[in-house]
Design a protein around this nucleic acid. Structure first.
Lengths: 226, 226
DNA sequence: ACCTGAACACCGTTCAAGT
DNA sequence: ACCTGAACACCGTTCAAGT
């Protein structure tokens, strides 16, 4: 049995980033600490700095590591709208699983994973026949919407202890909306019921579809392509 | 002249929040510190805790203070689409002026100012004749898009030293896009020129219009109302 | 080349003590 | 009731010293 004894692996950027992702997942955004991380890796805090420049670089790398495989595989045969929905849902689901990504994507603009997502969306926008000048705007609108939803989901996740029942949370929130002043918040009171019963993921997709419909409207060929 | 001597005003929540806003504006998100804030208010750090529970509450209050007057005045005669554009631009401009708001809005979900913005948008969605079930989704899509753009703008502002020339920044970024691998990033290379010349505010509005067009598409009365 | 861990310069927050 | 400021329990980051 002595031969199966746990071997000490050498420290590496890869191991550090993996451990950071685990720590963020179990302990939340506040849980990633150089002390906690080095304890987990059985080393001193200073050792990490040999492989990673600082905490921000570590967060960027952790986000990229998670997002890299999350945006789905390109299937050239897909209709462009469906390919866009796939990418969007990939980001949505990744943030749902790792809420700290949502915060990080809203913090670091040059995040490489973001560039790749933007490229994927843009190629499909192009395939949709959107006129040249409107392509940049259309792809940006989609990306910004996706990031906005991600940020809000991350914020919601942060207020709840991890693993809180989502139904209970929505019920509480919905009840609070119903108690708002009817003169000041008639609309919100009105949709409070929809908040309780709504499906986050479906609503996210509906928003994507709203933007896609707006984009189809730009297309000189109209929206009845193929 | 002795009578015009600076009088020591009593500490108050109001004065604390005002000072926090000033500090955030001049020193950025990292500049708001209980020590820096108390020094500015000529008191000790502990004194602030008598008026404000903690730093998060202070950030929420500071964001609300800035956003309160920023979303424009309701003009009942406006066409609903224009009223929505006004609210959206109000938020956009507020974040442009105080980038730290963009980060904060993506962090705290129950932010009261957000509720008011959501209400304003929702009322106009209703006025547009959007069917009941789609109202919540439509208003959410608009809000999430607005927050997404705000978050990205805040992130961009954070990477630049305050007061950096925007044109120079876009030129650098655009040049970087042009240097990307043509096989991996054909779309981004293609729109790099548009990045350099684009107007943030106009592009933001174009995105709002995309969503509004998608919403009009839902409307059984069609988009030729009135 | 890579790791160790004490030390530095900060934080947010608390709290006994004052007025 | 409100303010003071030292003290506590943390941070991220650095760096001399080790192997």
């Amino acid at each position: 049995m002595a031969s199966t004894e746990r071997r000490e692996e050498a420290l590496s950027r890869q191991r550090i980033v993996d451990a950071a992702v685990e720590l963020l997942d179990v302990a939340g955004e506040g849980g990633l600490t150089f002390r906690a991380l080095s304890a987990r890796l059985r080393t001193g805090p200073g050792a990490i700095y040999w492989h990673v420049a600082n905490k921000n670089e570590l967060l960027v790398a952790a986000t990229d590591a998670v997002l890299a495989g999350a945006t789905g595989t390109d299937t050239v045969e897909d209709r462009p709208e469906d390919a866009i929905r796939t990418v969007a849902l990939g980001v949505f689901d990744a943030i749902d699983k790792h809420p700290w990504i949502g915060t990080q994507l809203a913090r670091s603009p040059a995040q490489p994973a973001l560039l790749q997502i933007f490229e994927r969306i843009g190629q499909r926008i192009q395939a949709l026949g959107v006129p040249g000048e409107a392509q940049f705007t259309s792809a940006s609108a989609l990306l910004n919407y996706i990031l906005g939803v991600g940020g809000q989901n991350a914020a919601n996740a942060r207020t709840q202890p991890p693993g809180t029942d989502r139904t209970a949370f929505l019920a509480t929130e919905s009840a609070a909306w119903k108690n708002l002043d009817p003169d000041e918040y008639p609309f919100i009171r009105n949709v409070a019921g929809q908040l309780r019963d709504h499906d986050d993921r479906a609503q996210f997709l509906a928003g994507v579809d709203l933007i896609l419909a707006g984009i189809a409207n730009l297309n000189p060929r109209g929206r009845t392509r193929r």
